[in-house]
Design a protein around this nucleic acid. Sequence first.
DNA 1: GAGGCGTGGGA
DNA 2: TTCCCAAGCCT
Length: 298
Amino acid sequence: MPPAADPDLQPEVLHDTVLGWYADHARDLAWRRPGASAWGVVVSEFMLQQTPVARVLPVWETWMERWPTPADLAAEPSGEAVRAWGRLGYPRRALRLHAAATAVVEEHGGAVPSSYAELIALPGVGDYTAAAVASFAFGQRHVVLDTNVRRVHARVLGGVEFPAAAPTRAERDRAAALLPDDEAEAATWAVAVMELGALVCTARAPACERCPVADLCRWRAAGYPAYDGPPRKVQDYAGTDRQCRGRLLAVLRDSEGPVHRSRLDAAWHLDDQRERCLASLLADGLVVATGPATYALP
DNA sequence: GAGGCGTGGGA
DNA sequence: TTCCCAAGCCT
């Protein structure tokens, strides 16, 4: 067998190393257990979009107990999903999950579809979530490109600290080239690389001393060059419409029935901003007007 | 394609 | 305390 151009990055070596590490270090997350349903995986993926695992766990448990199937959720008003979403953040995800459950019932007989094409057609399901569900719930071979995977690839393969702001074609091709040929192995590879990024190759403090592929890592080999790309944008929060919307929605979430406008007025001090945010919540369908001056969850 | 969209916690 | 970031999606 001829020597590879870059023996450090033989795919088989990376596969074996990462898969071996995953076998020993994978977290025992509820949605990964053998008995977990495809619906359970879908629910977890919606909740995990931009929200840490630790905060998702308890909500996922109560959610799945209350709505063990898509039909169970679809049978309730979407407002119940928003209420049960609690403080996970980005509550439009709750609305989309409810809409996805409805679509599963109406278009797929109540069973979560298994193909990428059908999955990505569901509300709130983008490229990542479609690939993740097809891979994790159905064992298929897909490029699963989330923030963890992108960071691991940027470092180990690209030799840089962070990936570009948005996935590039080159990144996608690189990930595809590295995907194991075997379907089952590819599915495990996808979750294993994600887990490595989540537990070891983290954004702020990578634990290279615990990393199974440290010896293969180009970023490490290059001496950990500092990030020199465009500024990575951090979102402001205090005083933004997002915070205002959150305050308003919290009032409705914590109330049994419709609330009077005065309750919302007390939740935010700036009149113009409060009105604008209430209007946007109504437009999003997160809030409905139940009377001349009363509002409720849908 | 850039910007909007929640919330909480660790460093 | 402040800053950064956490399994994205949609317009």
